[in-house]
Each structure stands twice: as C-alpha cells, then as structure tokens.
C-alpha cells in the first residue's frame, strides 16, 4: 500500500482501494460514457455536426411534403398541418428504427469487451436506445422550427410529450433486448429486421392517415404499437387534445409486453452469449 502511494507522488483524496462504484452507479456511469462516445463519434469530422440532427428530419419532411401534400389534403382535410403531421411521425418512427437497429447489433459489437470484463450485458442495448432518445431530443428543435414557421401554437398538452417518449423508449428497450439476444444466436435476425422495419414503415400511418385505409386495416392498426405512439405524439403536439384512452392504453401495454418479453429472453440467454460472439 505505502509503496504505491509513494510511487504515485502526493497523497490523494480517494485511495486506490476505493476507486470503484457500487454496481448500480457503475452502470449509470457506463451508460453515460457510452452515450457520449456514440454522440461524439456520430458528428466527429462533420462540418455541420449536431446541426444534422435537426436538418435530417427537416429535409426528409420537405421531400415527403412536396410529394404527398396535395394527395393527402384532398383525401383527408382533417389532417391539420401536413408538414408537422409528417415530421412528428417520421422522427418518432426513426427513433424506434435507430434504437432497435443499433441495439440489435450492440451485443455483437461489444464482443471483445464482453469476453474480458464482467459488465452487466444489458447496458449495451439500453445504451443504444438512450442514444436514440438523445438524438430525438435534437430533432425536437426541427419540430419546434416547423411549428414556429407554420404558427402552430404550443399548448400545455405538449407537456405530455415526454411521457410518450418515455413509453416509446421502454418499448424500444424491450425490443432491443430481444433482438440483441436473438441476433447473437442467429445473425439472420439482422437481415430479417431490416425487412420488418421496411414493412412496418408502410404499415404505420406516417405520411397517410388511417381514414384512407380499408376497415380491416384500421382494425389491424390497433395492434400496431407505433401507431399508438405516433398518435399520442400527434394528439399532444398537432391536434392539441388529450390522447384517447385507447391510445394511452395501447402505448402502455405495448411497452409492458415488449419489456417483459425482452427482459425474459435476454435474462434467459445472456449467459450463453459469450459462446456465440
């Protein structure tokens, strides 16, 4: 003990034996470090940097609005401000898309680390979802710009937005846990998921409204979790109403089911990960 103190020079406040966090706090610090790592990496060496998080949804919205504006307005005039309708749906959906895609690969990518250090494995998929939420927070700037431009008023209902995002994040955590575990054993899950996501994009009323769908499709939408999350967000931001009971229930139940399945599968198989990565 003494010798290492001497070697390190002056005496220090925290002794070398008390350098560690208790396990809970440790995970929080790891999550923070990993999220900040991803964030730094995403925008390193790009001139506009973080501005891309704002520009990306805006450009996407411009393109889609230009293409679908006329078509949608004649079909369903009750849609409200169409560009805002678009950007709210797109950003929420891409949060889910990014979070699950990155989360799915997170265990495979952390292979070399997991083989060496005992870390709670769930931090990797969870971290990717948190990173997705951070990115979403930046796209809120884009949403605010659109609302400002079209003079859509912001109401107290907007205070419910964090609730929607939190539920969506929980939903994504469950999905990511499941997908990351599954992809460790079967890499085809990664390819399969990209097909699922594409199908899901079209199955979700991102640029159209449910009113143009046939009846059986509308009934099916009730089983589409993303439909509920996006409706929740549009209710509070665009239409300025309280989300309906069905919507809230849809969000909560989807999150609960996803988390339950995700944690169950992850817990059950996480001990075997190391043999397959």
């Amino acid at each position: 003990m003494e010798s290492s103190e001497i070697a390190l020079g002056e005496s220090q406040a925290i002794s070398a034996r008390d350098a560690w966090y208790p396990s809970r706090l440790r995970d929080i610090f790891i999550l923070r470090q990993l999220v900040s790592k991803d964030f730094k990496l995403k925008y390193r060496r790009s001139v506009l940097g973080v501005a891309w998080s704002v520009l990306n949804p805006l450009l996407m919205m411009l393109v889609m609005a230009a293409v679908f504006s006329h078509f949608m307005r004649t079909n369903d005039p009750s849609i409200g401000n169409y560009p805002l309708y678009l950007i709210l749906g797109n950003t929420a959906f891409s949060l889910m898309n990014d979070a699950t895609n990155n989360g799915m690969r997170s265990i495979i990518d952390a292979a070399s680390l997991l083989k060496k250090v005992k870390i709670n494995r769930y931090v990797f998929p969870v971290q990717k979802v948190l990173f997705g939420v951070v990115n979403y927070a930046f796209s809120l700037v884009a949403i605010a710009l659109v609302m400002l431009f079209f003079r859509v008023p912001i109401t107290p209902y907007a205070l419910l937005l964090p609730v929607a995002i939190a539920l969506l994040a929980l939903f994504c955590i469950g999905l990511s846990l499941f997908l990351s575990a599954a992809s460790v054993f079967f890499r085809d899950v990664i390819h399969l998921w990209s097909v699922v996501i594409t199908a899901w994009t079209y199955a979700t009323p991102l640029f159209y409204t449910v009113s143009i769908l046939p009846d059986w499709m509308v009934r099916l939408e009730n089983f589409n979790p993303m439909y509920h999350y996006i409706t929740f967000i549009r209710d509070v931001m665009l239409w300025q109403t309280l989300p309906s009971m069905t919507t809230v229930l849809g969000c909560v139940v989807s999150a609960a089911i996803s988390l339950a399945i995700g944690t169950y599968v992850f817990k059950k198989f996480e001990r075997k990960f190391i043999l397959y990565i």
């Binding site: 220090q12 350098a19 560690w20 966090y21 396990s23 790891i30 470090q33």
Partner: peptide
C-alpha cells in the same frame, strides 16, 4: 475507466 467500474472523481483525480 467507466467500463472497469471506476468512479468518475477517481479518474479525474488520477
């Protein structure tokens, strides 16, 4: 340091 479970203050200090 975080992956090894070190405290942030400890890393700052050392």
């Amino acid at each position: 340091g975080s992956l090894l479970g070190y405290r942030k203050e400890f890393i700052d200090e050392r």
